[in-house]
Amino acid sequence: MGALTNPSPTSQRWIVRYRGFVLIPQKDLSWMVRPERSPMKLLPFRAPASSVEDVKALIDWRLGQNAD
């Protein structure tokens, strides 16, 4: 499961950690997806505006594509 983390008490920006990735919401409602650490399984990418569950499904799909 992912976890919500608030980077600072005064910040209103939340991030989600999921399967070794950090999902960062953007102002245009899209998501920046970055690996938490190296070695990277996937390069950072931007996901279109969607729910966090959709972004998690996209990560799962991309990880499945790299497993082949």
Score class of each variant (00 low, 15 high):
residue 1 M to S: 05
residue 1 M to V: 06
residue 3 A to F: 10
residue 3 A to T: 15
residue 4 L to E: 12
residue 6 N to M: 06
residue 6 N to K: 13
residue 7 P to S: 10
residue 12 Q to L: 11
residue 12 Q to G: 14
residue 15 I to L: 14
residue 16 V to G: 06
residue 16 V to E: 10
residue 19 R to C: 15
residue 19 R to N: 14
residue 22 V to A: 07
residue 22 V to T: 14
residue 23 L to Y: 13
residue 23 L to G: 12
residue 25 P to Q: 07
residue 25 P to I: 05
residue 25 P to K: 04
residue 25 P to L: 07
residue 26 Q to V: 06
residue 26 Q to S: 11
residue 28 D to V: 03
residue 29 L to W: 08
residue 29 L to I: 04
residue 29 L to V: 03
residue 29 L to E: 12
residue 30 S to M: 07
residue 30 S to F: 08
residue 30 S to E: 07
residue 30 S to D: 05
residue 32 M to I: 03
residue 33 V to G: 04
residue 33 V to E: 01
residue 35 P to Q: 08
residue 35 P to E: 12
residue 37 R to Y: 10
residue 37 R to K: 14
residue 37 R to Q: 13
residue 37 R to D: 11
residue 38 S to L: 13
residue 38 S to C: 09
residue 39 P to T: 07
residue 39 P to V: 05
residue 39 P to W: 04
residue 39 P to L: 06
residue 40 M to V: 09
residue 40 M to G: 09
residue 41 K to P: 02
residue 45 F to A: 01
residue 46 R to V: 12
residue 48 P to F: 05
residue 50 S to Y: 00
residue 50 S to H: 00
residue 50 S to R: 01
residue 51 S to K: 02
residue 51 S to G: 07
residue 51 S to R: 03
residue 52 V to L: 02
residue 53 E to N: 00
residue 54 D to N: 09
residue 55 V to I: 05
residue 55 V to H: 01
residue 55 V to D: 00
residue 56 K to T: 05
residue 56 K to D: 00
residue 58 L to H: 00
residue 58 L to M: 09
residue 58 L to D: 06
residue 59 I to K: 03
residue 60 D to W: 05
residue 61 W to V: 06
residue 62 R to F: 00
residue 65 Q to I: 08
